[in-house]
Design a protein around this nucleic acid. Sequence first.
DNA 1: ATTTGCTCTGGAGTCAGCTCCAGGGGGCAT
DNA 2: ATGCCCCCTGGAGCTGACTCCAGAGCAAAT
Lengths: 136, 136
Amino acid sequence: MKIDASMIDRPTIGQVSDLVGLSPDTLRWYERIGLLETIPRDAARQRRYRALDLDRLELLIKMRATGMPLTEMHEYVALIHGGPGTRPDRLALLESHRRRTLDRIAALQQDLVVIDRKIDRYRNFLEDDNAPSHAG
Amino acid sequence: MKIDASMIDRPTIGQVSDLVGLSPDTLRWYERIGLLETIPRDAARQRRYRALDLDRLELLIKMRATGMPLTEMHEYVALIHGGPGTRPDRLALLESHRRRTLDRIAALQQDLVVIDRKIDRYRNFLEDDNAPSHAG
DNA sequence: ATTTGCTCTGGAGTCAGCTCCAGGGGGCAT
DNA sequence: ATGCCCCCTGGAGCTGACTCCAGAGCAAAT
């Protein structure tokens, strides 16, 4: 196999999959539903991802990881398609997502308090089992 | 309607729903799949939740809120059914969930970094738009 | 006595987000 | 030229977690 620039710069779907941790099926599916642009194909009609596709993908993955629903990612992509004039809207969308994520982190910490209380109760049970009554 | 102790101590499904924020359908469904014990019924065959049902429910809700899948909640309930001898296992389950939740919080914060970078880029775009070149 | 409102059961439907599959290449190692 | 491995498309299938519905009961209000 001859090595050319496209091999280095333009990974195939399997390489991207290994790189970012999404399955090839998921990558194809993101493209189908319009989260990614149509990825350019090589002579054999196989996908070759460009740097800009990977950049978009990185952001999408972080959005997903922080719990943004696909519908909202769709909105974001639609704004991109709307051109530079939509930058304030994109900023607003990201800022509001950021706020929500911080709120969710705070909520998680609160929820953990209840679980921690339960953990403490179980720890006490176990202590009592090991030292049933040192005054008996 | 005569007010008796059961009205105060034993809320109906609607009252519990208002209290905890799960729909009556979801409460019935949690019972069906065995996350909650069979709730005792009153003379009219309607559910009357006891304090211990509500305690369990509170924990389940916090488990869900912190992302524990139903299957693992099932395991926890199965351990309860296994009697006091399973307390070490229940503790282990809760502790491992606690760890995972802390890890997830850390991951969320990391993921936000990428989003924050994007936000900064958009902020810079907007600044440039407002003051295109102060040396022009 | 009829309407209103909550509840019941059991089963079906929904939605998000993937995941799998059939049927068909291309390219390279043996 | 025969595997083998990865890739293609389009559509179907799956899982988790609910959510809705039909058909019925009881009880307080009008």
